[in-house]
């Protein structure tokens, strides 16, 4: 939509038109402030923990074992250099894996993620139904923001 608006503004004589293509969703996902009537506390972002363990896909099983063991959620998220989510690892993922194996070869790929602007109550209801303890929160472009624990909203 913003692309069409940008072209229309230019057609009508505005000399310098720029399109912030990632839009309001990306702005919100980046933790930037907004203005309006919405209840921000109702959003996933307000309940997202940034205390999350990450490793690169080239990390070895031996590197990742202590990271998983120490993580508050028992979860390590595998990200690339752009911080885009590639997969997840739990202790069960590492059972019987040799210490020198790259984690990218055994991670669980394509984990379910949620957007920061989704309603937290509805997301946590889905998590409870599916017995999910924690979910990765990402921007529309795939970058990790944090994790949403399943604990109830107070």
């Amino acid at each position: 939509m913003s692309q069409r608006a940008a072209w229309q503004l230019e057609r009508l004589g505005v000399v310098s038109v720029h399109d912030f293509v990632d839009g309001k969703s990306y702005w919100i996902g980046s933790g930037r402030p907004t203005v309006g009537t919405i209840d921000l506390d109702a959003r996933v972002l307000a309940h997202t923990s940034t205390d999350v363990s990450t490793v690169g896909p080239e990390s070895t099983v031996g590197d990742v074992r202590p990271v998983v063991a120490a993580d508050a959620h028992g979860l390590v998220i595998v990200v690339n250099d752009a911080h885009v989510i590639l997969g997840t690892v739990r202790e069960t993922t590492l059972v019987d894996a040799p210490d020198d194996q790259p984690i990218g070869e055994i991670m669980r790929v394509g984990p379910t993620t949620v957007r920061p602007d989704e309603p937290a109550v509805a997301v946590r209801e889905r998590m409870a139904t599916r017995h999910v303890s924690v979910l990765a929160v990402s921007r529309p472009t795939g970058e990790l923001i944090g994790v949403l624990p399943a604990s109830p909203i107070r």
Partner: peptide
Amino acid sequence: AERVAEVDPECPVAVYCWDA
């Protein structure tokens, strides 16, 4: 054209919607 006339044509403009 009527609405856009409210905008200074020489001022740089940035537009956005929800996402890409």
